Simulated scan of single mutants.
Amino acid sequence: MTAVSRAWKVLKELGLITRARGEGGKSVITKLHEDGSGQAYTIPGEGLGDPYFQLPFEYWDKGWHNNLSLPGKAMLLIASSQRKLKFTLPQERMPEWYGISADSAGKGIRELMKHGILVQVDEEWFDTLKMRSGRGCRPVYSLWPPFTPRALGEPTIGEETTTGISSDAAPKE
């Protein structure tokens, strides 16, 4: 029993739990936030500012963990981490930002688009010195349900998009 008491003591000192005496002298343990701040525990991914994201159950249930290649899985995780309905995935920045090659990022993006997990919903113009005109264009993407981050709603695809997918189209499996 002393090993368990020592473990509870360490967790309490780390600010991961509170420990109090309850009914009949038994310990009542309450978990706290995992950052050690002593704040109340919250379920990961519930708030928009929360750094955690979750892959939906369908990722495993529908076999995506077996069917996607490594570049596809990497780009799904990167896209999921964006925590927005619409986002860009600049392939030339992937080595610097995420440590994967631009080629692997491109393969992953194409694979996710082929399966209807990732869709292009718009284009974004930006200023750049790499182009003679000083302006560049890049695609804006959205994850299709069930991969859309919770609490953000459903993506919409307007008539003007270049994907050819209507807003009532279902993702391919």
Rank of each mutant, 00 (worst) to 15 (best):
M1A: 10
A3W: 02
V4D: 11
A7V: 14
K9Y: 03
V10F: 07
V10A: 12
L11F: 11
E13C: 12
G15S: 00
L16I: 06
R19W: 02
G24D: 12
K26A: 11
S27K: 09
I29Y: 06
L32Q: 06
H33Y: 10
H33G: 09
H33S: 13
H33W: 09
E34C: 09
E34H: 08
G36P: 06
G36V: 07
G36W: 06
Q39H: 11
Y41A: 15
G47N: 07
D50P: 04
P51T: 04
Q54M: 10
P56A: 10
F57M: 04
Y59T: 06
G63M: 09
W64R: 05
W64K: 02
H65Q: 15
L70A: 13
P71K: 03
G72V: 00
K73E: 14
M75P: 01
M75F: 01
L76H: 05
S80Y: 01
S80W: 03
Q82Y: 02
K84T: 12
L85Q: 06
T88F: 02
T88M: 10
T88N: 13
E92D: 10
R93D: 12
P95S: 02
E96I: 02
Y98G: 01
G99S: 07
D103T: 14
S104T: 04
G106W: 00
K107A: 09
R110N: 13
E111S: 08
L112I: 00
L112Y: 01
G116L: 05
I117M: 07
L118D: 01
V119K: 09
V121M: 04
D122L: 06
G134K: 07
G136F: 05
C137E: 15
R138P: 01
R138L: 05
R138M: 12
P139N: 13
L143T: 00
T148R: 03
P149Y: 03
R150N: 13
L152C: 05
E154M: 13
P155Q: 10
I157Q: 08
T161Y: 04
T161M: 11
T161S: 15
T162A: 14
T163Q: 08
I165H: 12
I165Y: 14
S166R: 11
S167H: 07
S167C: 06
D168G: 15
D168A: 14
E173I: 14
